[in-house]
Design a protein around this nucleic acid. Sequence first.
DNA 1: GAATTACTCGATAATTGTTTTCTATAAAAA
DNA 2: TTTTTATAGAAAACAATTATCGAGTAATTC
Lengths: 141, 141
Amino acid sequence: MEVCITSLLRDKGFKVTPQRLAIYNMLSSTKSHPNAEMIFNELQAMYPTMSLATVYKTMEILKEIGLVQVLNAGEDSFRYDAVMTNHPHVRCTECGQVEDVYDINIDAFVNEVSQGTKYQIMGQQFYFHGICPACQRKNSN
Amino acid sequence: MEVCITSLLRDKGFKVTPQRLAIYNMLSSTKSHPNAEMIFNELQAMYPTMSLATVYKTMEILKEIGLVQVLNAGEDSFRYDAVMTNHPHVRCTECGQVEDVYDINIDAFVNEVSQGTKYQIMGQQFYFHGICPACQRKNSN
DNA sequence: GAATTACTCGATAATTGTTTTCTATAAAAA
DNA sequence: TTTTTATAGAAAACAATTATCGAGTAATTC
């Protein structure tokens, strides 16, 4: 993984810096789909001079070299995901967490849309929102 | 339709104003899914004193009384749709237009996600992006 | 119809997430 | 090393959206 991001950056003419490695490592070791501010806060302990601009610029690069995808779950800010397989996301409207949805077959759905619209579909984003199991329990108490 | 929005506004304690009618009429007579600025520009000819803030405030109200839905198709601004049935949207990455996707059965898909995640799903948004037929033709020339 | 009340318009300012600018500095190349 | 070039990070700029507030206006009451 380390090797992967290092060589990917170099190949595209980007420099390998501690900040970029730290941001990518943090993102790839969490399932929380953080936004720029969450990443910034998390890294500030280890990298006290880290700035939000660096997070944004790094995400731009990581997106470009195909290491992260940007989520737009209908909130006011973008979230980031180091898992590149295209999968739906579901957001809890009460606690705000965003989870992955696995084991769903998208292909048939995409094909249907492609044929119906005559568009050459390049990608898609599926966002669900609702109430997570934990918040459902909290509510029923 | 006119009657509908008028009484809906009154019922919820909102006043019926020319601006609100104009904004809703404009939105319900187009398929272009405009954003606030497009609505503003379109109406400025007829309503020279119209302000962007009024568009935003009106959209907030229309959303609240269930007359429009807000689309977040991964762009930098929101788009609005007076069609309230929940349908997927597809955006052309070349010309930027957003179209509706009809004749797609969502329910089975939603159920599958609901069961898989244990979430109580309240809603969802499906966004596709790709190249529209017109731009495909343009490209091949 | 007139008076009162409460909501609304729209100019302006504020806010928020994101991007740009600029310069010392760190990474890569020689 | 030394030289070259891209980057980090502080600060300013930006753009979309929201809040504030006084004047105006619709709805309600008399």
